[in-house]
Write a protein that binds this DNA or RNA. Structure first.
Lengths: 234, 234
DNA sequence: GTCGTTTTCTGGTCGTACCAGAATAATGAT
DNA sequence: ATCATTATTCTGGTACGACCAGAAAACGAC
């Protein structure tokens, strides 16, 4: 039995979480003006330092718009949000995503994996394949769902790195929390052997430099997951 | 003659920029331990408030790792970076990107646009098309390069929104600075009429619900840009 | 009512101080 | 001298209170 490392969230994190909840639940309407930082601090019984830093971060996440010396306003995160916003939304729903969002992630993954695989195959070396295979092997031995999921993610990330497209790994990183979440649920549903098997077969196709088969396989796997996603969505 | 709205960057922004420069130039090596916040503040003659907030933001961007009560360390942004990191790297090079990165962006756009178009076509309404057409019309009248670029971006963003995939618009937003930058250069090279024309034809194909033609056109346009990118790259 | 002035409001920044965990130095028993 | 224990230092997290300067609102003279 392993224990997860515990760490109490900082005040700033608590503050951010609280504000996100207020905004995402609609209790703070879009466009609404927030009370002055001083009032928020007083009412929440925290220092203005925390409020100021927290608001600044929420602005970067697309939830707020700061107009210096005029006030802070709730932004339309659906229009101005970025990927980080989505992670926050997901965390707000205690790790749950709507079916539409799961579908969106998986559709996107088909497109991105396709790009990664097709870019990689023409230039892949034995060395590269050995690296990829390493992650697959580790997956076989992994104990916890989290471990398997992280290894599957690492495999994907490595694939993106090796593809030569400098943006792909960055996008995958932005997605990390999201994908890990999905993989864990996938494993709870189909077992971690299924995830291992899927990855392993993909790796085989890559080893044989068969881009078409690799893409086809991966697309099929993800499409199947989409079909079954009503079960992942709970 | 128009004047751009000026705004002096805040101290925090200056601090962040400075640190990014130090890290990206290599003067702060990866893994290196930063001086204590107090020393940085003293040496830069700013308050620790700014340093603390700035470091916090740099950590979120993947440039630093904060270990409370132990110190702050330069992270390997190439491995832990996300899309925001890339924007920072681009800004560090005063808006320039390496050819590999331009190519990466454009390759990615082919994949994403394809997904957006194919998701949109089966369900697009007259209303949607009117919205899209609106941006195209505005492009015709736009004066500055920046305006045209922003409208082209808005068109893409709207396309992503209408596609029904909830992630696409968020990704496009994460990309915003990058894409605007590329569009501006594209216009300087081929003229803003070219950008207008490209978008307009794409809109036509969408209006005729011809997904294949739309994708084909957009792919061709972007591929052409890739071929000519040695000129964008300077 | 209109225009110019003063006051208030607000986010940005500053400086100091305290907290508590981690690392290191100092201490003391064996 | 060695090693466990304790005291000190270091460091990021947080708290207060204060001032700055731009923007808005209140005010006042006409």
């Amino acid at each position: 039995m392993e224990f997860k490392k515990l760490s109490s969230p900082s005040l700033k994190e608590l503050f951010i979480k609280e504000m996100e909840t207020l905004i995402l639940s609609g209790r703070l309407a879009i466009g609404e003006k927030l009370p002055p930082e001083r009032e928020i601090a007083k009412s929440m019984q925290i220092s203005r330092t925390v409020v100021n830093a927290g608001i600044s971060e929420l602005a970067r996440k697309g939830f707020l718009t700061i107009k210096p010396r005029m006030g802070t306003f709730v932004a339309d995160y659906r229009k101005n949000g970025n990927l980080e916003t989505l992670i926050s939304i997901m965390n707000y729903n205690s790790g749950m995503l709507r079916k539409a969002e799961i579908r969106s992630v998986l559709e996107l993954r088909i497109a991105l994996d396709k790009l990664a695989i097709e870019s990689l195959i023409p230039k892949v070396t034995e060395e590269d394949i050995k690296t990829l295979r390493g992650y697959v092997e580790k997956m076989k031995e992994a104990e916890t769902l989290r471990e398997v999921s992280e290894l599957a993610f690492s495999f994907q990330h490595e694939l993106a790195l090796l593809s030569g497209n400098t943006l792909l790994p960055l996008i995958f990183m932005s997605f990390k929390e999201l994908v890990l979440n999905l993989w864990e649920r996938f494993c709870r549903l189909y077992g971690k052997e299924a995830l291992y098997n899927n990855t392993s077969v993909l790796c085989d196709h890559i080893e044989q430099r068969d881009a078409a088969k690799a893409v086809e396989w991966q697309t099929a796997v993800i499409n199947e997951t989409i079909s079954g996603s009503r079960q992942i969505y709970y």
